[in-house]
């Protein structure tokens, strides 16, 4: 049960700053959706938290340790990532790919032991890819590959799970399947989940709270009900929108009504 606290986090590419002092409390055992227009800095924030991009300043506190100061393996034992662009190499089996999730727990030269295999197997069952364990990962469908990468992330036994557009390239059924699974991981396995989403309606349906980003800053953070107002979304997205209610769940439903 460990919240992730971002304090005044900033980052950028070359001379171009992208994140301007992000401060955000990401609740433990909950799903926080990161939403906002293209170029707002959502993926950059994920890249900083996963150690791919160095932060220019600020902290990311988890249990009193600053994630940004950790060595790669130490960080990877706490934070796992499901990246947006899936790249699964040819010829490796699903089991081999998921076992790679044990990397941060193993010394460089050591092979996987029985416990590593057990953790990987539990992760595969959790992500519902256990039946595929001996299949070649590169020959699976997009939805299956997404769950293989999710299983690999779970095999890291992380406290924090980051997902970058987990529903991109998936059909509706697989989108819902992944999002439901992610929600279970927060509820049941007590993972602190932060995911970027483009679909505001899905964010409202599946996330416990949403953080709205614009031009490298957090504009609003709270429940979808509070954050997704027509006035605020129109301003951030530069678009006329109407906000209604989901016919079954009652969550906000956002629809574009025309450009400004």
């Amino acid at each position: 049960m460990t919240p992730l606290r971002l304090l005044n986090l900033s980052a950028g590419y070359g001379a171009r700053p992208v994140l301007h002092g992000i401060s955000l409390n990401i609740a433990a055992s909950q799903v926080t959706a990161l939403v906002g227009p293209n170029g707002a800095g959502k993926s950059t924030l994920i890249r900083v938290l996963s150690g791919v991009l160095a932060a220019r300043g600020g902290e990311a506190r988890l249990n009193g340790t600053d994630l940004l100061r950790l060595r790669p393996a130490e960080r990877a034992r706490r934070v796992a990532v499901v990246p947006q662009m899936l790249h699964l190499p040819e010829a490796f089996t699903v089991g081999e790919i998921v076992l790679m999730g044990r990397t941060p727990h193993l010394p460089l030269w050591a092979g996987e032991g029985r416990r590593d295999c057990e953790v990987a197997w539990a992760a595969m069952r959790r992500a519902q890819v256990d039946e595929l364990s001996e299949r070649r990962a590169d020959e699976l469908s997009g939805g299956e590959q997404q769950r293989v990468v999710l299983a690999r992330a779970l095999a890291q036994e992380p406290q924090v799970l980051l997902l970058d557009e987990p529903t991109a390239h998936l059909d509706l059924k697989h989108q819902v399947r992944v999002l439901e699974l992610v929600r279970e991981l927060a509820r049941v396995d007590n993972l602190t989940v932060l995911m970027t989403l483009h679909d505001l309606n899905q964010a409202a349906l599946f996330a416990d709270s949403v953080a709205l980003m614009q031009r490298g800053e957090i504009v609003a953070h709270g429940s979808a009900q509070d954050v997704f107002t027509a006035e605020r979304l129109s301003r951030v997205y530069g678009l006329h929108v109407a906000v209604g209610a989901h016919p079954v769940r009652g969550t906000p439903v956002v629809m574009a009504t025309g450009t400004l």
Partner: peptide
Amino acid sequence: LQLNARALNVFQLDEEQARQLGIHV
């Protein structure tokens, strides 16, 4: 080379994922 063989496996994912898995790329 043999000591780095498992790291080379993880490299096949791509460098960004290898880094996210804790490899000192």
